[in-house]
C-alpha cells in the first residue's frame, strides 16, 4: 500500500477542469501518483485497483451543491466493495461560482462517505471560480494551494484549503458574463439568445 490514486469524478472527465487540476496535482506531488477517470463500466476495476494504494484523491466538480452522479454511483460501489480501513480519502473540488465555501456541504458529504465505508478522511482543497481560474493570472494561486495539498497528502497530515479569484464580486460577474458570452459566440449563439426566459420552447 503506497502511492496516491487520483480519481477524476467529472462526467466530462476527458475534457474537464478536474483533469487539469489533477494534472497540476500530479506534477506537484512528491509521492507516486496514478490518474484514473470514472466510467460507467469501470467501477469494479477501480475498486480492485484502489486496494494497492494508501491514498485516494477525489477530483470533481460541484454539481447542484452536491456530488456529481458519476462520482456518487462510484462511491456507492466503493462502499459496497468495501475499501481498506487504511485508505485515506482526500478531495479537490471545484465549483463554478466565486465563493469556494459553496463547496462546504459536499466536503461534509465526502466525510460521511468515509464514515460509512470505514476509511479515513484526509485533506481538502476547495476551489471557487473553478470553471475559469486556470485561464486567468490567478492560476498561480491555485498551483500553490495544489502544491500544499500534495505535500499534505504525501506526508499524511490532514489539512484544508480554499482558493478563488481575489476579485470583487461585481468584477467576477462582469468577467464571467464575458466568458459565457464568448462561449456562446463560438456556437453562433448571441448573448440575447442565451438569456432567453423560455424553457423547452
Amino acid at each position: 500500500m503506497a502511492g496516491i490514486m487520483i480519481l477524476n469524478g467529472s462526467p466530462r472527465a476527458p475534457r474537464s477542469n478536474s483533469k487539469k487540476y489533477a494534472a497540476l496535482f500530479a506534477q506537484a506531488c512528491p509521492a507516486e501518483t496514478v490518474y484514473r477517470e470514472i466510467t460507467r463500466g469501470n467501477h469494479g476495476t477501480l475498486c480492485r485497483e484502489i486496494e494497492g494504494f494508501s491514498d485516494l484523491l477525489l477530483v470533481f466538480p460541484l454539481y447542484a451543491d452536491g456530488i456529481p452522479v458519476t462520482l456518487l454511483r462510484f462511491l456507492k460501489a466503493l462502499e459496497a466493495a468495501p475499501p481498506s480501513p487504511r485508505l485515506t480519502v482526500s478531495m479537490m473540488v471545484n465549483c463554478g461560482f466565486l465563493e469556494p465555501g459553496q463547496n462546504d456541504t459536499v466536503v461534509e458529504m465526502i466525510r460521511l462517505f468515509c464514515e460509512k465505508s470505514g476509511c479515513r478522511f484526509g485533506s481538502v482543497l476547495e476551489i471557487g471560480s473553478g470553471e475559469a481560474i486556470l485561464e486567468t493570472p490567478f492560476a498561480g494561486m491555485v498551483r500553490r494551494k495544489i502544491g500544499k495539498l500534495a505535500d499534505s497528502i504525501a506526508r499524511g497530515t490532514r489539512r484544508s484549503w480554499k482558493v478563488t479569484m481575489p476579485l470583487p464580486k461585481r468584477w467576477f460577474i462582469r468577467a464571467s458574463t464575458a466568458y459565457w458570452e464568448s462561449y456562446g459566440k463560438r456556437n453562433g449563439v448571441t448573448k440575447e439568445q442565451m438569456a432567453t426566459m423560455e424553457i423547452e420552447k
Binding site: Y63, A64, G66, I67, P68, V69, L72, R73, L75, K76, F97, L98, E99, Q102, T105, V106, E108, M109, I110, L112, F113, K116, K169, F172, I173, S176, T177, W180, Y183, G184, M194, A195, I199, E200
Partner: peptide, 30 residues
C-alpha cells in the same frame, strides 16, 4: 451521504436548462 440518492440527484442535475449561464448576486453570493 447527506445528499440526494441517484434518481433525484440525476434529475436535479438535468434541470440546469432552467437557469442561464449568466451570474448575479443572491444574498451577496454569486
Amino acid at each position: 451521504y447527506g445528499g440526494y440518492d441517484e434518481p433525484m440527484k440525476t434529475m436535479l442535475e438535468r434541470a440546469i436548462p432552467v437557469q442561464q449561464a449568466f451570474i448575479r448576486l443572491v444574498n451577496g453570493e454569486t
